[in-house]
Each structure stands twice: as C-alpha cells, then as structure tokens.
Design a protein around this nucleic acid. Structure first.
Lengths: 234, 234
DNA sequence: CCAAAAGTGTTTCCACTACACCCATGT
DNA sequence: ACATGGGTGTAGTGGAAACACTTTTGG
C-alpha cells in the first residue's frame, strides 16, 4: 500500500494539564523541563507521541513516567498547532487534562519525581503556549463541572460537604449558600453519608460522604445545576 | 537551535464535518475522495496540514479548496490519533466542524465542486474513522446548541420562527411546543422582527426575523434553555 | 462559657410546562 | 367556505434562591 509520499510530517507531542485539590485550593502540577530548548523552565508534563501509540496512550504514558500516576481521569482538551509554538521545530501538541486528589498521591509525586504543585492563580511562567493551554483547561473545567459531576475526581474517597463546597467555590471563585448547596448535591443521590466525622478542621466535625460509584457512572452524563446562575459565570 | 532529532514525525491532516440546513432537515456535506487509498469512496473533506499553516488555517483552506466556502463558523472538534486509522500510513486527524446555510451557497458548491449534501441520518458509508467523527460532531452539536445560540449559523440572514423551530426539532429529533418555543427564543432578545413575511411555505406567511449581531456576539457564551428537558436528551 | 464551624427548613418567586383558540390568506 | 399553517395567552407547578437560627465541642 502506498504512502502519502509528497507530504510533510510533523512532530506530535502530548501535554497534560493536571488539576489537583488538597482540600483548600485548586492546584496545578508542573515540572521543570528536562531537555533543550528551555531546559529547566517550568512546563506542563509533555512528551512526544511514539510511532505505535495512540494519543490517549501517550498522555497516560507521559503522566506515568513523570509522576507515577495512572488510572486518573483524563480527557482530551484541544490540539494546538501553531507552526511557531515551539521555536526549535514545528511541533503539534495534543493536550489532555486530568483531575486528581493531591493527598492521595502526595508522597509518590514528591519523592520519586521533580513535579511540583502550584496554586492555580500563582504559578511560575511557563514555556511556549502552555499558559494558553491552562487557560483553556480552566474554562473547560468550569464549563464541564457546572453540568457534570466531574469534580469528585478531585476528592478523596471520603470527603465532607464543606470540602466539596470549598472545591466548587475555588473553581468558580464564587460563594455558595451552604443550605442550598447541600440540598442540591444530596438530591443527586450520588452521595452516601458515612458514620465517621472529619475532625481536623472543626471542633464539631463534619460527616464524611462517599460517592456511590454505580450511580456516578450511570449518571455521569446527567446535567447538574450546582452553581447558582451558571449563566453569568461561564 | 537544535531539533528533536530522535523523534518520529507523523502525517497530520484536518477533516471537516460540515453541517448544513436547507429549511427542512439537517444535512452533511461529503465528497468523493480524490486519491488513493479509497479513491472514489465517500469521505469528509480533508487534507494534509502544510509546513507553515496552522490547523485552523488548514481547515479553512481545505474547505475553500473543496467547496469554495469561506468565513463560515468553524470549531475544533477532536484530534483523532489511532495509529491504524489510515491503513496507508499513520496519520493524525484534527477535526473541525462547521455550520452553514445550504441555500446561501448552493450553486457554488454544486457547480464548481464534487461535494454533495446528504441527510444526516442517511448518508453513504464513509472511509476510515469518519463515521466516528460524525457521531462525535453530532453529539457536540446537540450539546452546544442546547446551551448556546449556535444554530443561527445554519440559517439565512432572514428566517422565520417556524424555520428555526424545524431546525431545533431536526437536531434533537423531538417535537417542541410552538408557543413555548417562540416565547423562549424571543425572550433572549437576539431576534429582530422584520416587516416582510415569508410566503412560500404558507398562505398566511410567517414574519422574518434577523439576528441582532451585536447581541449575538456578546451573548454567545450565555446559556440558553431552548430544549425542554435537555437533561434527558443529551 | 465562648468561639467556630456544621447542620437544618421555610417562604418567595420565577421559569417552565401544558394546553386551545383565533387569524390571515390562497384556492 | 374551507383548509393550511401562523400566531398568541394563561393557569398551574416545581425548582431555585434568599434567608437565620440551633447544635456541637474544643479550648
């Protein structure tokens, strides 16, 4: 079978925008780039696509190689293709974004690799068009989280309603009424109340909840309306 | 500046999923592929990305070359990268979807080129993974049109409410109450009633409306809720 | 006993739904 | 005159928002 012999071939990379939540604020996982150009500068996790792997496969491999993480939520964001986005050579970048619970993997990431968490509103300058990628990922996260129960990916197995609310408030930079909030999230039927309480962050303690995984998977495509007046925010 | 000399380069193509509306039903623009492999088979509009053009630029160029169209609504859909999606050689495809008013460009397309409109539910088998691309584009169109006033791209400058309703009904394969429909779309403030009527399709005639372009641009990111129970449909 | 955060109910209001009749015109 | 599609109004309902007090407990 013939090849398309006349055509130019391009480098194709994947870059991963990894959002994490530590119970307080939304963060971003960055690494110091290990090769030229821009060696040592902060960057998203990235790597080139190998001849026989899919884009999803490449993104998962890169994440695994650079952080040790696997099995996390991952979704294609956008293909960036500006001819000059990498000054060394034209490189297309297929971007993926991921959501993870920081505490679940904290030692792993810090011990084995040179990745670091930065608050999303206060991270170092990044190479190439990585800022643009992050902006797009933030928009996508807001858009998606307003409609789908996606944010549970960012939380531990057991979490409290105040934690969940803090997460929403962080992502939308908005305050939410806790009475309305709890009514809404509980009405989805996705949460199962536990008997134990989380007692670190308050004297009284807050009940833990777990996600009902079966309902989560079947209801994932349902719409939510957790965010009041999402119209005005997105 | 050094290049990334060790890495494999890939062919990168763009493919365009072009939706059109003729006042009756939602259609898809396809062409017969002009080169091997699969020459003569039906396919999306596609072409390889040139060394110095962006993905958006390539998509616009392909569309222009194969249909004569330019300046139409166009949005990146997804990057398809399965290593075996093209049997001749590994080729990544960055897909874009477009929305156009069929009648506005009808002669142009039919006279000068070999593109053809097919009803969306009744089109010929397509090459490679183009079916999957179309399915994804349909989902995206439904998703997006439920929330944003995107469908005006598919309509002529002047259109009637019954036409607009027909379009929504076609896209969601659902019936909509005309009283509720007109109340909702008019309440957006995006439509300006004209003095003339469209008299082709009824004796009484239906008033034309035009889109208020200024409001359209500023309100584009607002949410709509034109579709009753979008929850259950999407 | 005081501070700090968790938890809980009610009322108001608005947006969505369901639904039926009259209007204008060409034949 | 009648058939065809266009256009409009209302009553009822349910979900979202606004709102304040009580509970628990560690210090």
């Amino acid at each position: 079978m013939k090849r398309y012999s006349q055509q130019t071939r391009l480098l194709v990379a994947v870059d991963c925008i990894i959002f994490g939540f530590d119970g307080q604020e939304l963060k971003l996982l960055l690494i110091q780039r290990g090769f030229e150009p821009e060696r040592g500068k902060w960057s998203l996790m990235g790597g080139f696509v190998k001849p026989t792997e899919s884009f999803e496969g490449a993104a998962a491999r890169v994440l695994k190689e650079l952080t040790g993480l696997s099995g996390v939520y991952m979704e294609q964001l956008h293909a960036f293709g500006d001819p000059n986005r990498d000054p060394a050579e034209r490189t297309a970048s297929i971007t993926y974004f991921s959501l993870i619970d920081i505490r679940k993997y904290q030692q792993q990431i810090n011990d084995d690799f040179h990745a670091e968490w930065f608050p999303i509103r206060k991270h170092p300058r990044l190479i190439f068009d990585h800022e643009e990628m992050i902006d797009m990922a933030k928009d996508r996260l807001q858009y998606k989280a307003a409609l789908h129960p996606i944010l549970f990916e960012l939380l531990p197995d057991k979490f409290t309603l105040p934690q969940l609310q803090t997460l929403y408030e962080g992502i939308y930079d908005a305050e939410i009424d806790k009475r309305n909030f709890s009514r809404k999230v509980l009405s989805t039927g996705l949460l199962v109340k536990q008997k134990e309480k989380e007692k670190e962050s308050s004297k009284r303690g807050a009940f833990y909840y777990k996600l009902d995984k079966r309902k989560y998977n079947s209801k994932f495509h349902n719409f939510l309306n957790i965010i009041p007046n999402a119209h005005n925010l997105i």
